[in-house]
Every structure is written in C-alpha cells, then in structure tokens.
C-alpha cells in the first residue's frame, strides 16, 4: 500500500517511522517544505521511502497523512478527498477543525474517511472519552485538559491558543469564552501532578459534541503558567524548543450508570510528539485494515465505530493509559 505523508517535523518523522515498520506499507512519500528535513527523514527509512516537495496526491495512493503546521492541513485534506483517498489529519487549531468538519458531505460523496485531529489532544482524548462513555448508560459531561507540546509548530499553536477565544458546549449551545480564563486545578498522572489549567482556543468540544448525543457540557483546558498567560497576547518572545518532552492529558467523563452518578477519569503521561505520532500512525493503519470498516465522512476519533480496536493498537505501541481511582 502506498502512503503520502505531509510534514516531516517532530511528529511527521515519527509517523513515517511507524508506518515504515508495517509490512503492509510498500511505499511512503515524505513531503515537507524543508528539503533538508524531508530528505533526512526519507533516507532514514530505507528503500520504501522517497522524498518530494509536490503536494499532488497521485491516483495510486491508498492513504494520506497530514502532519504539517496548523492552518495548512485543510488544503491538503481537500486535495486528498478530491482524489478519493482517505486522510488522517493532526491539526489542533479550532478554525481548521471547523473547516475540516465542514467538508463532511464532500468526503461522504467521495466515500472516503477524513479523520480530523488524530493526535494527543484532540485525538487520544476523544478515544478516552469514548472509553468512559462505554462504561456508562448516559454521559452528560466531558472535560479534557492537556499539558505540554510536541514540536515547534505545536508550541506556536499552544501559545496562540491561550490568547484565542475558547468554545465550550454548555446546556445544548455553544458558548464563547475568553482564552486564559476559567482557572481549574487539574491532576495529571505522575510525575506531572497538579497544574492550573485555563480555557483556550482548543477544538475538542467541536469533535466530541457530535459524537455524544445528549451531552450537556464539554470543556477543554490547557495547562499554563503565569508567564504563559502574561505573554499570550505578545508574539513568542523566544524560539520554541525543538520538542516538548513531557506532556500529559486528562479526560473526565461524568454521567449515569443506571441510577448511580459516576465520574470516570483517564490520563496519559508521555512525550506529546511521540504519542501524536503513535495515534496518527495507528489511525492510518487502522483505516487501511479493511476489517475495521471506517465509515466515510469527516469525524474525530470518538466517531470511529471500531474505536476499541484502535485504542488497543495504540496501547500496543507503548502508550500507557491510566485511570484515577479515589475520591
């Protein structure tokens, strides 16, 4: 099977490596705006891989994975859909997620799946929310939070999100909130521990609400320091780090099991770029496996019917899921 990978950054390079290790993949075309980076990644993969700077999809392509900086993914996803090729995107920008979800009909017409935001958060958080929902009779609240960033593009988006307006789902309607507001102390798996989290331009609610009918509240928060909040409205004062090595997510699902009120909490502590790559690559391989029958149309990972199998394949690639037990 032939795969085209757009983006060879911290996440893209890892996605390429995971795809390369799968026997079903016979060819990977690595595309990036930086010639040095795409050649370096392609040459590290061996004979299966080639590098290119062309954004053409090609008719013989079986799958497209987009791991380019936020804002550039919608055009590539649209091209792939027009070519009738399934797409996996990794964006976490609100406007881009909205744009990707809006081409749902186009994807359905072409009979191809378009997976929106197969990453750390959103992505793994959507799967964990679905896992929690499986245990409950009825879900009425989902709250997600994250700490940490992947590569430089992710760090820039993280900085921008803190000064962007947040979208929450509250009592059946969308509510816009100021980024950086709504401080909440969230407990992440150790060694990250408790961190103050704030609202921000995070697209999680856009992906979760359509998949959980009857849900009353969906919120997303991100961990930030006082300096992050103080400088959120300014350009980044220094170059982002090559890669954020420590990260964590936390998913809280509230609902009812029969007549009993239940709160389930899941978390993952890891390197964000690594987990994003594992989630994106596992999703790509999941789509290629005909047994999984991923439905046509644009949706987040919570909307995949065979989500449990996908989650197990992610866990099988070394991501440790944790749940909070206590009161």
């Amino acid at each position: 099977m032939r795969v085209v990978l757009f983006g060879a950054g911290a996440t893209g390079a890892r996605i390429a490596r995971i795809l390369n290790s799968d026997e079903r993949i016979t060819s990977i075309r690595v595309t990036d705006s930086s010639a040095a980076r795409r050649v370096e990644v392609a040459s590290s993969l061996g004979l299966k891989a080639t590098s290119s700077n062309s954004s053409d999809i090609g008719k013989a392509t079986d799958l497209v994975v987009v791991a380019t900086p936020m804002g550039s993914q919608i055009g590539l996803a649209r091209k792939a859909i027009q070519a009738g090729t399934p797409v996996v995107t990794t964006t976490c920008e609100t406007t881009e997620v909205q744009a990707l979800l809006s081409i749902r009909e186009e994807a359905q017409f072409q009979n191809v799946p378009l997976i929106v935001s197969a990453g750390f958060m959103p992505g793994l958080t959507c799967l964990l929310a679905r896992l929690g929902a499986d245990k409950l009779s009825y879900v009425d609240e989902i709250h997600v939070a994250k700490f940490g960033t992947g590569g430089p593009a992710c760090a820039r988006q993280h900085h921008k999100a803190l000064s962007s307006s947040a979208i929450d789902w509250r009592d059946g309607r969308w509510v816009r909130r100021i980024g950086g507001s709504g401080r909440e102390l969230c407990w992440f798996p150790e060694p990250v521990g408790g961190l103050d989290c704030y609202r921000g331009g995070l697209p999680d609610a856009l992906l979760l609400v359509p998949e959980f009918s009857g849900v009353c509240r969906v919120t997303a928060r991100m961990a930030a320091t006082r300096r992050d909040r103080f400088t959120a409205f300014l350009p980044m004062l220094r170059r982002p780090h090559p890669e954020g090595l420590v990260g964590a997510i936390r998913v809280e699902v509230r609902g009812w099991k029969g007549t009993e009120r239940r709160v389930l909490m899941f978390g993952v502590q890891c390197c964000p770029a690594e987990v994003t790559a594992i989630v994106a690559a596992s999703t790509a391989l999941h789509i290629l496996d005909a047994d999984n029958e991923v439905e046509a149309g644009a949706r987040g990972l919570a909307g995949i019917r065979s989500h449990r199998r996908l989650l197990l394949s992610i866990v099988g690639r070394g991501v440790w899921l944790e749940c909070f037990e206590g009161a």
Binding site: D134, L185, G194, L321, E322, C323, F324, E325, G326
Partner: peptide, 22 residues
C-alpha cells in the same frame, strides 16, 4: 474538594479488552 485519597493506576491490556460496553 481536591482528591484526598487514591491515585492514578495503569490500565492493563486485559482490562481494556474486557471493558464493559453499555
């Protein structure tokens, strides 16, 4: 009230495989 007792526990593969579905 912040959590007073308990903590994070790793989910085992078997637990995930046998996860109840409503």
């Amino acid at each position: 009230v912040p959590p007073q007792i308990g903590g994070w526990r790793k989910l085992k593969d078997d637990e995930l495989r046998n996860w109840p579905v409503n």
